[in-house]
Design a protein around this nucleic acid. Structure first.
Length: 557
RNA sequence: GGGCCCGUGGCUUAGCAUGGAUAAAGCACCGGCCUUCUAAGCCGGGGAUCGCGGGUUCAAAUCCCGCCGGGUCCGCCA
């Protein structure tokens, strides 16, 4: 709805010598403010206030949604009309679960998580998952046909090492991804402690990798078994976080289906490959110091080669493709994009996020130095359960609520931070529910549900919003509600889902403000109906917003 | 050494894209509010030269240059 208001304001400002779009912005002093007078004042050698007044006197307002316009200190302030806020509430109530949707169309492939199958997901990986999954939900809401992929690095050295690790140290009976990590850590430790064996193991690794790439049956079975175990565990973790993938795409697929050969011949045709011992692509014209190796001396391919093939496939199947990657992939990611551009393919849009590190330093699966997502989930869950232990819920309800609150806290904690900011993980903060902003939002939603439940119980659930009954707080709240799709749009444009987390939070704050100062059930006829409409609209916005964040909107807590 | 990212009250962050009206939240701290729709809440208070220095501009947390501090990458690993 706010998008409509904005476009009406822009339309009213058409026909002047400036591009209204670049001067109209949201403001705390108005619903929309235009700052163009400052710019023009200089050119015309007048005071901004004069210029602004002149513009306003020439304004052609045809929209019913623009209630008033005023000039303050050179700012042109636009205010929405009663009609606008009435339409907003009615539109929200009518659209219900569809409120906030856009109709962008098209399709997008979102590749996220894609952690190496050498152990369980740790708290760095799930930052990736949460950004990717939230983005996927928001694209879906925007009317884009979304497919999500987990790209599985099944041909990597780690898998070969793990195969050897299991051979030497066995496979423990526990959650399979954790068992995989034990074998992987064990063989790495063994190599550190027995440097004399290192060469022998490396030779075996190389042989395993070659045989897997050739499609050797026996080796394939070993690799598959390791990868499937790791993936089985990761999938379970992701499901607990409300994250799902449409497909797990194994990189070996692109070796087997000819895409790797195709991408190599495309590069050859452009004369980009230097065939020394290994094959490399020269990117010195693009500012890279070193060539990118795409084929080893022994004839096997590298991660980047298969990734190029994967992106050839993406080019053939999707309009847009977005990858969520840790910032340590920046160099290789940019190299990949530049190579694709050279051969006339579209590069992926990449969302880089900075590391999640521990107070004592960065994590490493290889060294077994990490906090697994499972452990985090379990501890946060237990903490959440403690808080509701005394409530009058059944045991099953308590578990459900604790789970929903725990996952909400986790997801919100990761998503609220801008991707480019590094995070230092802190147990104390992760488990401190006093500062868990997600449960605050869930709580606001539950409060709204509670009022509506009681209204129905009293037999007077009739809703009738009336713009002229609005207090300033109510007006402010409704204006915020109208901005749902503006927030969705912004996430799509900037690929930064944290701005949406902020939006939902703002709605919750405004709702709680309204809640404590505006009695609903106790109010008289019209006011009661009017406020019930606001409560229901807030309920819808909070519920839809939480769902986009992958958080369960509880009705009681 | 080079590239990229980060640096905002004591702590964690938002705002930076497209410069604009007293820099916004949470935690922590201080003081209030449960016979009234869920106190996982609300209200009030103290606390910030927006890392430092320059520049552009009527106007800079936001743009430009330099510096400092932290992170990260620079493998025939992924």
């Amino acid at each position: 709805m706010f998008r409509q208001f904005r476009s009406d304001v822009l339309k009213a400002l058409e026909g002047f010598s400036f591009k209204a779009e670049s001067f109209v912005k949201e403001s705390e002093h108005a619903d929309l403010a235009c700052t163009v007078a400052f710019k023009l004042a200089r050119e015309e050698k007048k005071r901004p206030q004069e210029v602004a007044e002149e513009i306003v006197s020439q304004l052609k307002i045809e929209s019913d949604y623009i209630g008033s316009v005023e000039v303050v200190n050179g700012y042109i302030n636009f205010f929405a009309s009663y009609e606008f806020i009435e339409d907003t509430i009615n539109y929200i109530l009518d659209s219900d679960e569809n409120y906030g949707s856009l109709n962008l169309g098209g399709d997008v492939l979102i590749e996220h998580t894609s952690a190496n199958p050498d152990g369980p997901l740790h708290i760095g990986h799930i930052r990736n998952s949460i950004i990717g999954d939230t983005l996927a939900r928001i694209f879906e809401k925007a009317g884009v046909d979304v497919t999500t992929h987990y790209y599985v690095n099944d041909m990597g050295r780690q898998v070969a090492l793990t195969v050897l690790g299991i051979e030497m140290f066995g496979f423990e009976d526990e959650k399979p991804d954790h068992a995989v990590a034990k074998a992987y850590v064990a063989i790495n430790r063994y190599m550190d402690e027995h440097p004399e064996k290192k060469e022998e193991i490396e030779a075996k690794v190389e042989e395993l990798m070659s045989r897997y790439e050739e499609g050797d049956e026996e080796v394939s079975r070993l690799f598959r078994s390791v990868v499937e175990k790791a993936l089985e565990g990761a999938g379970e973790t992701l499901k607990n976080l409300n994250v799902t993938h449409d497909e797990y795409v194994w990189e070996s697929r692109f070796v087997r289906n000819g895409y790797v050969d195709r991408i190599i011949s495309m590069l050859e045709e452009k004369g980009l490959i230097q065939k020394d011992n290994a094959w490399t692509v020269d990117l010195s014209n693009f500012g890279y110091d070193k060539n990118v190796v795409i084929r080893r001396e022994n004839g096997t391919t590298l991660y980047v080669t298969r990734d190029l093939a994967y992106h050839l496939w993406k080019n053939e199947n999707f309009e847009r493709f977005i990858n969520i990657l840790g910032s340590d992939h920046k160099l290789i990611g940019n190299q990949l994009s530049d190579i694709l551009k050279i051969i006339g393919l579209k590069p992926p849009e990449i969302v880089f996020f900075e590391f999640v590190s521990l107070p004592e330093g960065s994590m490493s699966t290889r060294k077994g130095k990490f906090i697994s997502a499972d452990e985090l989930i379990e501890k946060v869950y237990r903490e959440a359960y403690e808080i509701i232990r005394e409530r009058e819920f059944s045991e099953e309800q308590k578990r459900e609520v604790a789970r929903a609150v725990a996952i909400a806290a986790l997801r919100y904690d990761f998503i609220r931070v801008s991707p480019e900011k590094p995070i230092t993980f802190d147990w104390k903060k992760a488990l401190d529910f006093e500062r868990q902003t997600a449960s605050y939002i869930q709580y606001s939603h539950a409060r709204a549900c509670s009022i509506l439940r009681k209204a129905v119980g009293n037999g007077m659930p009739y809703l009738e919003f009336a713009g002229e009954l609005c207090t300033p707080q109510e007006r402010k709240l409704v204006m915020l509600l109208s901005k749902f799709s503006t927030a969705v749009e912004r996430v799509i444009r900037e690929l930064r889902p944290n701005v949406f987390a902020d939006y939902v939070m703002d709605v919750a704050i405004a709702f709680n403000d309204f809640y404590t100062s505006h009695p609903v059930l106790k109010a008289e006829k019209e006011i009661r109906m009017h406020r019930l409409a606001i409560v229901d609209a807030c309920r819808i916005v909070l519920r839809n917003g939480l769902e986009l964040l992958g958080i369960e909107p509880l009705e009681r807590m």
